[in-house]
Every structure is written in C-alpha cells, then in structure tokens.
Design a protein around this nucleic acid. Structure first.
Lengths: 169, 169
DNA sequence: GGCAGATAGTTGAAACGTCAACTACCCGTG
DNA sequence: CACGGGTAGTTGACGTTTCAACTATCTGCC
C-alpha cells in the first residue's frame, strides 16, 4: 500500500546512487491510488460474483467483442485491447468456449489467425449483466466523485496508459 | 475495458428496470481509468520482475511491515491493510517465510493470533528494491502527470477507497 | 463456569495465471 | 524458391489465488 518509508529512505540514501523520493503529498496521493484501486476492484469483483455468472474479466472480454462488427475480434487484437497475455487469453477463451459464450473461427486469409466470436448466449448474458455492472461502477466510483474529479481522473489515467504502453513489448 | 455499449444499452432497456447508464464523457473517463490501471500495474510488475527478486505484492507487504513498530504486524491487520484475503496472506507469508524475508511469532495475550515480523534479510531486500520501485512509479505515473492532476487523482481514489470499504465484510 | 457465536488463522483442492517451449504460418530478401 | 526472422496462437508444467471447510481461541452472557 505504499512506496517507501522515511526509514527506507534514510537507509537507502547512505552512499547510494541518488533517488528522487516522493514528497509527502505525492506519497499520500500514491497510496490513495493504490488502496483505492485495490478496494474498488475487489468490491466490483464481489458485485459480479454475487449477481452474475460473469466474472469481471469475462465481462470486459464480452464488452470488447460486443463493439466489433460481427461481434468478432482476432485473438491478438482482443489480447491487446484487454491488456492480457496471449496465453491468458487462450485459457480464458477455452473456458468461455466450453460454456458456450464465445466460439473460435478461422480468420479468412491468414491461416495463423483465430477469430473469437461472441455467441447469442454470450450476448444475452452480457445484456443481463450490464445493468448490475453499471450500477456497481456508479455506486463505487462515478457517483462518489465530483464530475470534475472524475473527468480529471480519466484524463490522468489516459496519460498513464499511454506512458505504460511505451514500455510494453 | 468498458462498461457498456450503445447496443447493450438499447437491448437492455427494453422492458427492464431502468438503469442509469454512463454518458459519453463518463464512459471515456471510466475506460481510461480501467485501461490505465491495467497497463500501469502490468508495467510496474514487469519492472519488479526484471530488477528485483521482490514481486510488487511482496514489496507492498514489506513496506507495510516496515512502518510498524518492531516491523511487526498481526496477520489480520496486514491482510486488512493490504486488502488481501486471509488465506492469500497465509500462503504469501508461507512463501516469504521460506525465503527468510519474514517470520511468524505468537501474539502475546491472544493465542489465536500470529504476528508477521520482517527479518533483517527482508529489510535489506526492501531497501535494495525501493529505489527501483520509486523510479518506476515516477516514470509511469507521477512524472507523467501535472501536480494538480496527480493530487486530484489521489483525492478521488481516497473517496473511492472509503466507499468501497463500506461494502467489505 | 459453560455455552453460543464471533474472530484468527490454516488447509488442501480446484480455478486461474504465467512462463517457456513449441507448431504453424507469413513475409521479405538474396 | 528457399530460408531467416517475425507473428499468431497453443500447450503443459508450474506457481498463485480462491473457496469452503476446518481448528483453535476469545468474548459476552446466562
């Protein structure tokens, strides 16, 4: 829940290459971000567990598909969009395919490729889960913040996302 | 990476209890938060994997301990502070204990209790890992944002944390 | 003092995620 | 056209997390 400590700072600065530690205000903000995210995601997860047969991750996957023409996306594009490893996506799609929520199809014109297609059952489950999901997101985040706060939060995390992307691959 | 879709919205509003969907700006902010957090945590994790023998989670655990008098905390307090399940903490401490980073001790006066104590080796590893950690947090988040943005982000996530806490337990 | 229910922590199996190795295919260059 | 390197996706083994069941202890109350 934290980045450092006064004592870590003291110990680490003895004869080490210099480190730009966080000042107190930054430290507070950083910890609030960490703790907030941890508790928020945990609560959102619980909301799904107890109210929908769709975990948060599966929900996101179906949302991503639902926005594509044909409700179809290549495995690689899906992995990138959801920031999942390819192998994790393979396993997840395996499980969802067994439950009949998605299907695999060959990509026309590239025999390496595999398309992930949402089934009708997947669509129906997504539609049934959406209200619960949105309600939880509102309850836990959107409605808790001032509109400007939420907007700044979005802008800030957009910047962070762009920065983190440059360190991928 | 998203909360809903125009089409989910359309489908779900047919004869359903009314749902307050997110408007476009809220949707953008929400997705930016999701994607930003996913990519940020992934990048921070990678920074630890390739530069420290301490995973991000283990690092947080040691930081938490480092701030306690005696570098000691009860298992339950540690679990609460890190927003971990008790069982997850048990397993994590098992592994760290095997590596000699922490130790278990009986809690005086409550024979159910177990204290988790950071060892000297744990402390040394924490101190060695801190500069890398802080550098990554700066590079990926703090230095990417305007000071006010970061401050608002912290305040906002503080509110979210408080709200999420009311739904725990 | 003893019982009911809460709290602390652990356990082991199943579900999930990661990692490195692997197959298969694509594309550019000589 | 072949071969070298890149991309797509999967696999299985291994490590981690979750979940429900369990033991042990504590606390309040009769």
């Amino acid at each position: 829940m934290a980045s450092t400590t006064d004592s870590t700072r003291a110990a680490a600065t003895q004869g080490e290459a210099e480190v730009r530690w966080l000042d107190d205000g930054q430290q507070r903000a950083w910890r609030a971000y960490l703790e907030g995210t941890a508790r928020f995601v945990a609560a959102l997860d619980r909301a799904h567990d107890s109210g929908s047969p769709l975990s948060l991750g599966e929900y996101h996957l179906l949302v991503q598909l639902s926005e594509q023409p044909g409700r179809t996306l290549r495995m690689s594009a899906l992995a990138d969009g959801l920031a999942l490893s390819r192998s994790r996506l393979t396993h997840t799609v395996d499980r969802m395919e067994r439950r009949g929520l998605v299907e695999r199809q060959a990509v026309p014109g590239d025999r390496r490729g595999v398309n992930c297609v949402m089934t009708e059952a997947g669509w129906e489950l997504l539609v049934r889960s959406a209200p619960l999901h949105v309600a939880a997101v509102r309850r836990l985040m959107v409605d808790v913040l001032e509109p400007e706060e939420f907007e700044v939060l979005g802008r800030a995390m957009g910047k962070v996302a762009r920065e983190a992307k440059t360190y991928e691959a």
